[in-house]
Nucleic acid binder design. Structure first.
Lengths: 190, 190
DNA sequence: GTTATAGTGTTCGAAATCCAACATTGGTTT
DNA sequence: AAACCAATGTTGGATTTCGAACACTATAAC
């Protein structure tokens, strides 16, 4: 069941090289040969693991999307409840390992593989469900509020992955203020 | 002639893992299994490349000693001539790739493998040859002067490999002053 | 239009690596 | 002393990777 370490190593090497190249040039400009050369892997081995460079991108985007999906519920509850300190600390910890890759992949926008869009879609669904569960007094457009909440969370995520853990002070206050403003028109009857 | 990339990769992986472990604990405490685990390599493969961990250490020390040997003549001439700026810049460039490994290996002192001692021995021989070629007026103990020159150079090297390139300003003046003092008693007739 | 050129994707025998076993050594515990 | 454990070094068959072809496509160059 557990696979051969050689497979783990080659996939790791190919993915690391791929991210390195993506940090230097656009996805379209990168060739399979580039990836193999940078990772000291033969092309025949590349094709034993992936259909093509699109498949490699797909799998990586799917991988990080899945990791994010596992955390979305927790993070969402935190921002609703106002645990901004915990939220920022948790996000930072989650991203610690994957920071570099996620940051680079956020710059890639292919029709069938867009990590940033995936994150945004997941958050938007959460907001829509959350609002649908409330019993509202307001006549404000709820889709607008959902979009606003999503944007705030995405901006926070992008901030965290592109800034050092040391420079996160002061973030909490800003986020909390905006969070309250977003939730302001969601007064419930209950 | 050119060897299979797989060999290059495994030796690189084993050596990187070895340096990582050496940065954490002593050479004696490190087992072959440790190195293999850290590098995702099987033990049988380790033994296909090295006789044992001592052999691995020997080969690495020999490797960096050889690199250093190729540069000793140039660096020696520079310090005699007083090209301290070029010397520091050149040393820094030489070490750029190997800084981490050399720095860690400088802390390992095994009877048959001691990189720091190798560097020192090479420099000392250079000084002794240099002094022997001079026609001296002085009655100062020349071996002492050779040892002093060697120590100054070793200290400079250790400074360069353990400090960032950005923090090298101010080094030149200090080294040049001491260099003149060391050479002071080597007045020649010619 | 044809001629290069660069990238894609495939194939197959050779080479390297893996894995799981094994015997052996040296030190510790009981 | 005996039993144990951790590490060493070795072996052989299974698996993976490599390297060097090959055919194919698309695009640019002449």
């Amino acid at each position: 069941m557990t696979q051969d370490v050689r497979k783990i190593k080659t996939e790791r090497d190919l993915q690391v090289a791929f991210i390195q190249l993506l940090a230097m040039k656009g996805f379209r400009q990168i060739t399979v040969a580039d990836i193999c050369e940078a990772s000291l892997t033969s092309r025949s081995t590349f094709y034993a693991h992936y259909l093509d460079k699109y498949d490699l991108l797909d799998q990586m985007v799917a991988h990080y999307s899945a990791i994010f999906a596992n955390r979305v519920d927790m993070r969402f509850d935190q921002i609703i409840a106002g645990d901004i300190d915990d939220l920022v600390a948790g996000l930072s910890a989650d991203m610690a390992e994957n920071r570099w890759a996620v940051q680079v992949l956020f710059g890639v926008h292919e029709p069938e593989a867009d990590l940033q869009a995936n994150f945004r879609t997941m958050l938007l669904k959460k907001w829509q469900n959350f609002i649908a569960e409330q019993v509202l007094q307001t006549d404000a457009p709820t889709d607008l509020i959902a979009s606003m909440g999503t944007s705030v969370q995405m901006t926070l995520i992008e901030w965290v992955i592109s800034h050092d853990k040391a420079t996160l002070d002061g973030v909490t206050g800003v986020v909390d203020t905006i969070r309250k403003a977003v939730l302001l028109h969601l007064d419930t009857k209950a």
